[in-house]
């Protein structure tokens, strides 16, 4: 039990519950199932991307190109729609094509980081520029709206199972799948291992370059899926719609307890981080706080959370008494 309480995830959960309690007083709407589903559905894209980013941050890297990659895939989807017949097979096909497009871009990032050994922040900064530039060039910044979408896709986008929007299932599948990979497969454990100590991983025969390649490739695949979710949710493709989202993604992961220096992070923690950001935003709308103040609160919470985390880490290090001093 004590172990459990020490986990970061628990303290995030506590904060979420606290905010939730306050909000349910402020607005009766907050505690309704409808509101919750809205909150979650509205953050499926953020959630999927944050889950992918978790793996990258566990290996102590970072990817600032995620939003651009997702946009690029979304734009590709938008153009594909003109060629795809109106049938459920098209939707299925989409779930094959979009992840593959994302995968290719993720692989480029991964190869540059692992083989060419360029720091991840620089690589992804570069690919961000390149991808965003190409997207803007091709689309000229114009919307693709739902009129050109096949009906089958619109049906998919509006589909609800047991009263729950399909996109939420999509997030759940990604979350469970990634959790499984991280917890129960060799590659997943290798991700945690190289984040914990790269040198040790070399010595026990883990090919850390392959693992790095994997996390970026996986991020690409998830960006592809997120692109479908984004297109389904907004029912349009907006080349500028996800500008700067990468930083929110990183913020969610960090709030979720992942350590930017590697070795620590979990899918459920990240989901809590996403939830925290989402509830705050939702709550401020419900509490009729001027939308302009929302960023102030979000920013302050990020700064406070990372500071608090660091202070408690330092304390725990100090407490690990190095020497048993004779009384």
């Amino acid at each position: 039990m004590k172990e459990l309480l020490k986990q970061k995830e628990i303290s995030i959960l506590a904060i979420i519950l606290l905010i939730g309690a306050v909000l349910s007083f402020v607005s009766p709407v907050f505690l309704t199932i409808g509101n919750f589903l809205d909150i979650i559905e509205g953050n499926v894209v953020l959630g999927i991307l944050a889950i992918g980013m978790t793996l990258i941050i566990i290996t102590s890297d970072i990817d600032v190109s995620v939003a651009a990659v997702t946009t690029a895939v979304a734009v590709s989807i938008g153009y594909l729609f003109t060629y795809l017949p109106d049938s459920w097979i098209s939707v299925l096909l989409l779930f094959l094509i979009a992840p593959v497009i994302g995968l290719v871009m993720g692989l480029v990032n991964g190869l540059l980081v692992s083989i060419i050994e360029i720091p991840a922040i620089v690589v992804t900064l570069g690919t961000l520029n390149i991808i965003a530039g190409i997207v803007l060039y091709i689309t000229n910044g114009n919307y693709i709206n739902s009129t050109s979408f096949p009906k089958s896709f619109m049906e998919f986008a509006n589909y609800e199972l047991l009263g729950i929007p399909i996109l939420i299932y999509l997030l759940a599948i990604v979350a469970i799948g990634t959790w499984y990979i991280l917890k129960h497969t060799l590659i997943g454990r290798s991700v945690l291992a190289i984040g914990g100590n790269t040198q040790s991983s070399v010595r026990v025969g883990i090919d850390y370059k392959k693992v790095k390649l994997f996390v970026f490739a996986y991020m690409g695949v998830l960006a592809g899926i997120a692109a479908i979710a984004q297109t389904a949710y907004t029912k349009a493709v907006d080349p500028n719609g996800m500008l700067g989202l990468e930083l929110t993604v990183i913020a969610a992961v960090v709030l979720g307890g992942a350590n930017i220096h590697g070795g620590r992070g979990s899918v459920h923690g990240t989901l809590l981080g996403v939830l925290l950001l989402a509830i705050m935003q939702n709550g401020m709308i419900l509490a009729r706080i001027d939308t302009y103040w929302q960023n102030v609160v979000t920013g302050a919470i990020i700064v406070i959370a990372v500071s608090y985390d660091h202070i408690s880490y330092k304390r725990s290090q100090d407490k690990l008494a190095k020497i048993e001093v004779e009384a």
Partner: peptide
């Protein structure tokens, strides 16, 4: 991490 947070924070202050 800090500047990620303050970036959002300062943006918020400007918006406010």
């Amino acid at each position: 991490l800090v500047t990620l947070g303050t970036m959002v924070l300062f943006e918020g202050i400007i918006l406010a």
